[in-house]
Nucleic acid binder design. Structure first.
Lengths: 196, 196
DNA sequence: CATAAAAACAAGCAAGCGCTTGGTTGTCAA
DNA sequence: TTGACAACCAAGCGCTTGCTTGTTTTTATG
């Protein structure tokens, strides 16, 4: 998300700075083990000052997850824009998701997977609605397209979940500085779930 | 793990009872959000009494993860025992892992995936060593066997990680009471990672 | 330069946390 | 019956937590 988009979403530069630091800490130690004093210190302010920007600690997490979700949605839409072949769309989306996890978003995508339990139900629903409205829409369109051409091994919804799991787990083993490139990894995944 | 095996591992019935309740709570709220008072109340004792059985809160988590890892290892070994065809071994292991997640272990397998960060490094290494010694050994044997016959789509190590991710994620969407059976789900996974 | 709003500080409260202590109860072998 | 030990209770200590309050500093605007 660029600066103007952030402003439109009601996120001041100060908020964005705090969230960025918070995300690193959440990734490192988890939401619960990260104290507001940790976040404040990382941002260079005192802990009480955080509550001038956020009404409570959880709102920091919500803001982070909402921002990440928006960003991933925008990038997914950009990735499939202008591609009509659903197989190519799928490939683009796989690379896009891997990039979000291992490159663009730093640790934000990790937090998005790990910290659902720390969000209250209302916030959780808001983030999920955000995700379904753009990111998941792209995925299901591509997968349905592949399925209509008989190229998908599993039903689209099952394929989506299996792929999502395989991709999310890469954060536990894949290293960008190893022998396997991101594109290579994306190929392995694509080949697994599409018919030859 | 049966009662005798538990005793051999130094786990009294009281400990096992506490761990079982703790696992449910860890699954529900996470390790950090679960207090020793919660665990004690669920077991029907006072919080201080927990420390007669465990030297601290983290040891409860470690015991849970070690028990689960041992149990999954035993079941994996039993699942492939007597099977020589590596493809059949792989199928058996996939069903085995799905069963651990969705059936036998209640919520223990969830905790095993989610709460690594709450474990200190020494305990983490112990659990990992336990896992590599039996559970992962079974998996790699089966996958290497498939690969030697040219049946695997990806290199064995990559396949293992992709499969693990796909399976672990099922806990976020798969329901045992839905239309898709565990065996059916296992077939979907098998078909994805093996050549036709 | 004056003024108001935004941002940060300084200090600390109330609640909840993991864990300790010292004593009581229950169990069972000798 | 007695002694020994494990299991548990009752009480609370010391510390950390998220958050509040009242004040001061910084920044932006006319």
């Amino acid at each position: 998300m660029n600066k103007q988009a952030l402003r439109d979403a009601g996120i001041s530069p100060a908020k964005a700075r705090i969230v960025a630091k918070a995300v690193d800490l959440f990734h490192e130690k988890g939401f619960e083990r990260t104290t507001v004093r940790d976040i404040a210190a990382a941002t260079g302010i005192l802990s009480g000052s955080l509550f001038h920007h956020f009404k409570n600690k959880q709102e920091i997490l919500y803001t982070a997850m909402a921002m990440t979700t928006r960003g991933m949605g925008e990038r997914a839409e950009a990735a499939v824009a202008g591609i009509s072949n659903p197989v190519e769309q799928l490939k683009a989306l796989i690379i896009c998701e891997l990039s979000s996890i291992h490159r663009e978003d730093g640790h934000a995508a990790y937090v998005l997977v790990d910290e659902w339990r720390s969000l209250d139900e209302a916030s959780r629903d808001k983030v999920l609605a955000l995700r379904d409205g753009s990111y998941e829409k792209c995925w299901m369109a591509a997968l349905d397209g592949c399925d209509e051409q008989g190229l998908l091994k599993s039903p689209p919804k099952i394929a989506r979940q299996l792929i999502r799991g395989a991709l999310a787990w890469t954060r536990n083993w894949y290293r960008t500085d190893g022998d396997l490139t991101l594109a290579g990894l994306a190929d392995e995944v694509t080949n697994s779930f599409l018919k030859p």
